[in-house]
Amino acid sequence: MTPAAKREIKKTLIGLGFSLPVIVGILGFTILPMILSLIYSFCDYDVLTPMKFIGLGNYIKMFTPEPYGVWEGFSNSLRITFVYAIISVPMSLILSFLLAVFANRKLRGMAVYRVLFYIPVLIPAVVSALLWSDILDVDFGFINLLMHRFGKEGFTFLSSEDTALTTFILLSLFGIGGNIILWTAQLKNIPETMYEAASLETNNPMYKFLHITIPYSTPMIFYNLIMGIIGSLQVFGGAFLLSGVAPGALDFYVCYIYNQAFSRQSFGMACALSWVLFIIIGIITMLIFKKSGWVQYGEEM
């Protein structure tokens, strides 16, 4: 073996050595659980007793009414999750974009606003959920106590199935600080010369916004759209903690999976539901990629 080949092998081994933690992590904590969950999804498995192979039984049960299947719960959780995704994703996209445009302006004290926008992102979802549940408590919550003081009747917020989802969607907007940071980075990349050139034709800010700012931001719109949809279809922590008071109202798809596993002791069904979610997310992402002709990258402009 030539010294050059030896050096190459050594370099490869060292590279592999340093990559090993990630490789082991992905194999052990992502690929292996995925394979196991796929196997479990074809079994009747409650962890406590030996699993039984039932073929497509769990997948068929999803579309079978109770008590022989889980259609009611499955379809209800899908409905809630899609309603949440359809409303919250565009809302957070538009609001975070507008706030980023505002935060990108060269005004005094703007850094303070940027920090204020980002602070809620630093609070873990679980802590945030507990804080909001206290603030929005029907009887003793800060907001309702204020309303009582002004002679108004308290609002039900998270404790009624009629208002819980709306409240949850509005609460999710407190986490848009992460998006704002990404938008800001994208907006800063728009060449100033574009605006200067446009100024030769018009001083209309809306024209510049529609013809320069938005087209240059489409890669980030595309990224935030995909990540937003995936995130909204996987809502769990906060919803799970806040779901106790209005049964069923915040029964998101992942909460339903958890429920199947730990309340119904049906791990096989939980795994099958997880795979269905994986497929749904895969299809939606693929469709968005296929229809991504509107995204304009720098080199295309």
Binding site: V138, T156, S159, S160, E161, D162, G244, V245, A246, P247
Partner: peptide
């Protein structure tokens, strides 16, 4: 939960 929390 529903009985105690939901006015309807």
């Amino acid at each position: 939960f529903s009985l105690n929390n939901e006015k309807k």
